[in-house]
């Protein structure tokens, strides 16, 4: 019952927003969009999506700060950091900051779906 799952896509890049929305809706998820960190925190706390796909480099507060604030209120909220910062040390940095998983940009569409599905399934279980 994928319809029950809502994914919040937080990304300042419109192209990325559209890509994720298109792919995830096609896969059966509901998609919410946030264009910056503060919006992401607002929507996450008010709409309580099943999980969040979060960019890092965003205007205002960045994705890591947004994640910190969200997790402070909703510790169990699964958050995947999706970033073009993909130097070797970045992945560890994001996980250490509390991310449930990390998706490097650019990504294969199948990877995006797999990572979202695995977190959604974990949430269900």
């Amino acid at each position: 019952m994928p319809d029950a799952y809502t994914v919040l896509v937080a990304d300042d890049n419109e192209v990325a927003q559209r890509l994720c929305k298109r792919v995830l809706e096609k896969a059966g998820y509901s998609v919410l969009i946030a264009a910056d960190g503060l919006q992401a925190v607002d929507i996450a706390l008010s709409q309580r999506p099943t999980m969040i796909l979060m960019d890092v480099a965003m205007p205002g507060i960045d994705g890591l700060e947004a994640m910190r604030r969200i997790k402070a209120d909703v510790p169990g909220m699964p958050i995947v950091i999706a970033s073009a910062h993909s130097m070797s040390s970045d992945r560890e940095r994001f996980l250490a900051a509390g991310a449930d998983d990390v998706l490097s940009k650019p990504f294969r569409l199948a990877d995006l779906i797999a990572i979202v599905e695995s977190l959604a399934r974990a949430r269900t279980a």
Partner: peptide, 20 residues
């Protein structure tokens, strides 16, 4: 670090939509 970030951001759309 910045250049690679810029490139990868741009490539995200290019790769994703071309895959679609």
């Amino acid at each position: 670090s910045i250049v690679s970030h810029e490139f990868r951001t741009a490539l995200t759309g290019i790769q994703g939509f071309s895959e679609l």
